[in-house]
Design a protein around this nucleic acid. Structure first.
Lengths: 198, 198
DNA sequence: TGTACATCAGTGAACGCGCGTTCACTGATGTAC
DNA sequence: TGTACATCAGTGAACGCGCGTTCACTGATGTAC
């Protein structure tokens, strides 16, 4: 049976990604070690390198999964709502996901390619998918906007919300208090929506 | 002369911070090495540790300087302008500073305390000073807002602008194209200002 | 079904390098008389 | 002003550790006949 080997391989791969995700969530990217993942999965250190090119590769796989999880947790934003309701729900859903999966979510932004180059295309595609969730509602809000300009506006919108969530959650310096975050997001979205009607 | 020793000491300290800032600006925090700084200044490796507690300490000093530079470059925002003009100028000024001092600016947010703890108070104080630049104009915009609530709103405002600038400049994934950043900031500030009039 | 051989997933000790930090030392600067 | 001594800034070779990655090996799985 040829398929059995492949099945085992695939299971190993999933286990490694799962263990890596758990480790990243536990201690953040900076405390992430190949040896820990191997120990968690119960395989030899070298085994990781028979499945992934290097540690960076493994981290990218984890990030891809995180993006998919994020997408799933934002999905129930249907068309029937007003743009304001929908955009508020998306912003707050993003904040909730970030808070619940803090270190994995951070890894999305902390991780830099070893050569300093851009992320691989397949990862960028995940991002675009998520941005399209926003575009729908922003288009309703500002009917004149379409194509390139709409995509750009969605990016700006995401970036602003991300900034608010990000500064709030890494309490390092000027963090917003946690309990106020949801409130601030609602006010913020309300302001931008109110100011967009032209 | 006792003062002469202290003078030399102070000069060495400034040289080290200057060289460190240059190195950070050149290659980013992740490529920052004690040996490089020592070589640039022309002193021994160990000398760094006679002036600073450890490398972290030196990095914090560089960050403090960066914050001061940022403050200076934003300062010419006088009271006579409308809130919209002033807030647009501040947002675009922030973007300009970030673009010109990209790696030093990044270091402000990339750097984590070794023990995972918060930044020292004297560094937080620098942040607060900068936030006060915003408060002035936001207060004019929304007269009902004061005290704690005003500070919070200023933080949210800063975080949103920071997010837009940050996602744009680290081109990694969904970066806004550089030349559109200033434009997007203007539109964005316009929207929030328009939506704040209550 | 059984035997001999080939392939390849998985192993883990060892390599190699980078780099922050230390510490015994030295030479310059300051003090006492 | 000059000499002897004390202090302390500055030195840089060496330490120590962490950790990603490799590679010669082994044992399990699959194939041929």
């Amino acid at each position: 049976m040829v398929g059995k080997r492949q099945e085992k391989r695939e299971a190993l791969r999933r286990n490694l990604i799962g263990a890596a995700a758990a480790r990243i969530e536990e201690g953040g990217l900076s405390a992430f070690r190949a040896r820990d993942v191997a120990a968690d999965v119960g395989c030899a250190l070298g085994t990781i390198y028979t499945v992934f090119q290097d540690l960076d590769d493994l981290i990218l796989q984890v990030n891809a999964e995180t993006l998919q999880d994020l997408g799933r947790s934002l999905a129930p934003t249907s068309d029937v709502e007003t743009p304001k309701t929908a955009l508020t729900a998306l912003a707050q859903g993003y904040a909730r996901f970030a808070a619940k999966n803090f270190n994995r979510w951070n890894a999305l932004f902390d991780h830099r390619m070893a050569d300093g180059g851009p992320s691989p295309d397949w990862l960028l595609a995940h991002h675009s998918t998520l941005l399209r969730l926003l575009e729908r509602h922003i288009a309703k809000l500002t009917p004149g906007l379409a194509g390139e300009a709409l995509t750009l506006r969605a990016r700006t919108w995401f970036a602003a919300v991300h900034g608010i969530v990000s500064i709030s959650l890494q309490k390092r310096f000027l963090g917003l208090p946690d309990d106020r975050l949801m409130e601030e997001l609602e006010v913020f979205v309300g302001q931008v929506v109110a100011g967009s009607g032209r």
